[in-house]
Design a protein around this nucleic acid. Structure first.
Lengths: 167, 167
DNA sequence: TATTGTTATACTCTATAACTATA
DNA sequence: TATAGTTATAGAGTATAACAATA
């Protein structure tokens, strides 16, 4: 009866994508940590840097997190001096989140972290493999309606103590 | 000063892997849900089904979760009648986790969920792209020391209410 | 003394609901 | 009445520390 098969999912794309994606998110969180940035803070900072002032609600929608959680996130960035709140003139209920000069500098440092990470991830691939991986991932991302940017689930990826790994 | 560049990371492999991986883990959790299985339960069940009886400590090590958390997980599986605890004869501190007949049936149903998910993930790819994606992911997984199987971070991926998505 | 399973506690992140001020 | 921001509360999930039984 009990067929002890040798892990039927080792070559599964679903498992490979989940596992490699999770490890990637973990590495991303690790390279961001020395800058004092969480992945969510990275998302807000680079979003504002790239697309200009936005209300907290707009940022929350764009990043896929709830506006309730955006409050503390903006508090954190404001406390670090990277952004500031400014009352929106046409809608006085809303705050525009404005990048400061220090915030712009931090956004540049944060974005500069990405290319080395990409290189590290693709270190074992041939240039042709690297290109085809990028292309295939872009196709899958579009097919699955995955928005480019920082995602709510990504925010979960924190460095893991992980005392496990086969004793 | 503030250079409003158009999202410099849209083509980044790190972002593509993180985002597609997270979405994949979410889809995985969703197809498991109708079976009454969480991703961690899937991990324990298929691990025991594939590799035979193991102690809770061995399972915890193999799946990368803490033995403290394994207690409740085994409680859950035992409550569902899929596994049972049996005192290890040579080490009476430990329990061997044994698959029941119902557990074996559930493990087969759980494993059967993977191929359709793989097909769905690769639906937009050509066969050649599908193959090269699998190959590249395997290479990266090996390079990053990602073990095949269920990972602790994967367990995080739960269906998200996500009322966001651009309002 | 070290290890297995267990329980308890604290901390983080998130989900939900409410409140205020504006629209 | 609806929405932006805020706050509070409760629920998951996990990390840490302890404990009893056994090695």
């Amino acid at each position: 009866m009990s067929s002890t098969a040798p892990t039927p999912y080792a070559g599964s794309i679903a498992f490979l994508l989940s596992a490699v994606g999770a490890r990637t998110a973990q590495l991303f969180a690790q390279v961001l940590e020395p800058l004092g940035l969480t992945t969510r803070a990275f998302g807000v900072l680079t979003n504002v840097a790239a697309h200009g002032p936005q209300t907290q609600q707009e940022l929350a929608d764009g990043l896929g997190i709830h506006r309730n959680n955006m409050v503390g996130l903006v508090d954190e960035l404001e406390g670090a001096g990277w952004v500031r709140r400014r009352r929106n003139q046409s809608d006085r209920r809303a705050f525009d989140i404005i990048l400061t000069a220090r915030g712009a500098a931090m956004a540049r440092r944060a974005n500069a972290v990405i290319p080395p990470l990409d290189q590290r991830l693709a270190a074992a691939l041939t240039p042709a493999q690297h290109r085809s991986l990028s292309a295939a991932l872009s196709v899958v991302a579009a097919d699955l309606d995955v928005q480019p940017g920082v995602h709510p689930w990504l925010a979960r990826a924190r460095p893991n103590h992980a005392g496990a790994q086969r004793s």
